[in-house]
Simulated scan of single mutants.
Amino acid sequence: MSLKAIAKQLGLSVTTVSRALNGYDDVSQETKARVEAEAQRRGYRPNTFARRLKMGKIDAVGLVFPIHPVPLNNSVFMDMVGEISRELAQYEVDLLLIADDDNADQHGFMRMVQGRRVDALIVAHTLDNDPRLQQLQSAGFPFLALGRSQLSQPYAWFDFDNFAGTFSATNHLISLGHERIALLGENNYQAFITQRRSGYLEALSKHQLSTDYLRAVPPTRRAGYKAVQELMALPSPPTAIITDCNSHGDGAAMALQHMGLLTGEKRVSLVVYDGLPVDSIVETDVAAVIQSTREGVGKQISSMVLGLISGQPVESLQVLWQPEFTPGVTVNPPA
Rank of each mutant, 00 (worst) to 15 (best):
V61E: 01
V61L: 04
G62F: 03
G62C: 04
L63W: 07
V64S: 06
V64C: 08
F65Y: 15
F65I: 13
P66D: 15
P66H: 14
I67K: 12
H68T: 14
H68C: 01
H68G: 01
H68A: 14
H68S: 13
P69Q: 13
V70L: 05
P71T: 14
L72Y: 03
N73V: 11
N73W: 04
S75W: 00
S75G: 02
S75N: 06
V76D: 01
V76I: 11
V76F: 15
F77T: 08
F77I: 05
M78N: 07
D79T: 07
D79F: 02
V81R: 13
G82T: 12
E83G: 02
E83R: 05
E83C: 06
E83M: 04
I84S: 07
S85N: 14
R86D: 07
E87M: 12
L88S: 02
L88W: 04
A89T: 03
A89G: 01
A89W: 02
A89K: 07
Q90H: 10
Y91M: 00
V93M: 05
V93C: 13
V93S: 07
V93P: 03
D94L: 09
D94A: 12
D94N: 08
L95C: 01
L95K: 06
L95I: 03
L96N: 11
L97E: 09
A99S: 13
A99N: 07
D100R: 03
D100V: 02
D101A: 13
D101F: 03
D102P: 06
N103E: 14
N103Y: 10
D105T: 10
D105R: 08
Q106W: 00
Q106K: 08
H107V: 01
F109C: 08
F109R: 07
R111C: 11
R111V: 09
M112A: 10
V113W: 06
V113S: 01
V113T: 02
